[in-house]
Amino acid sequence: MRVHAMQGDTLDLLCYRHLGATAGVVEKALELNTGIADLGTVLPHGAAVLLPDLSTAQTPATRALVQLWD
């Protein structure tokens, strides 16, 4: 999915706004958009960004819940 940055947008904000997640998604978006980090933290208005498909984005493994007391 290709989206365009609005004023003040960051890559993680775009991922959250359009995909509803950031964990594992931002990293995949960085891989898809070679050189986007060179644009800075705040993306220029109108910058085209290719976002990953959520089914192909690898999210981190869920950790087991550890309880200190039973």
Rank of each mutant, 00 (worst) to 15 (best):
M1W: 03
H45D: 15
D53W: 04
Q7L: 15
C15Q: 00
L32K: 02
L39T: 01
V25P: 04
T34S: 14
L14Y: 01
Q7H: 14
A47R: 12
L11I: 05
D53S: 12
G24C: 04
T22A: 11
K28T: 14
R63G: 12
P52K: 02
T62Y: 09
E31M: 09
V25D: 07
D12M: 07
G20A: 12
V25K: 01
L13R: 13
W69F: 10
G8E: 15
I36M: 05
L39E: 13
N33T: 03
G20R: 11
Q58Y: 01
M6E: 15
L13K: 07
E31F: 04
L51G: 01
D9Y: 05
P52Q: 03
L30Q: 11
G8A: 15
T41K: 13
D38R: 11
T56L: 11
G8N: 15
M6I: 10
N33F: 06
T10G: 13
V42K: 07
T22G: 11
P52G: 06
G24W: 01
A47Y: 06
T62R: 12
K28G: 06
V42L: 14
L11T: 01
G20C: 13
L50G: 00
L50Y: 01
V42Q: 12
P44A: 03
T59E: 10
Q7F: 14
Q58F: 00
T34V: 11
G24E: 03
M6L: 15
L30K: 10
P60L: 03
V26F: 08
T56E: 13
L51R: 01
T10R: 14
A37W: 04
E31L: 10
P44R: 05
A21M: 10
A47W: 02
Q58N: 06
D12Y: 10
R63H: 08
L13S: 10
M6K: 15
W69Q: 05
H4M: 13
T34D: 14
A57I: 00
R2V: 15
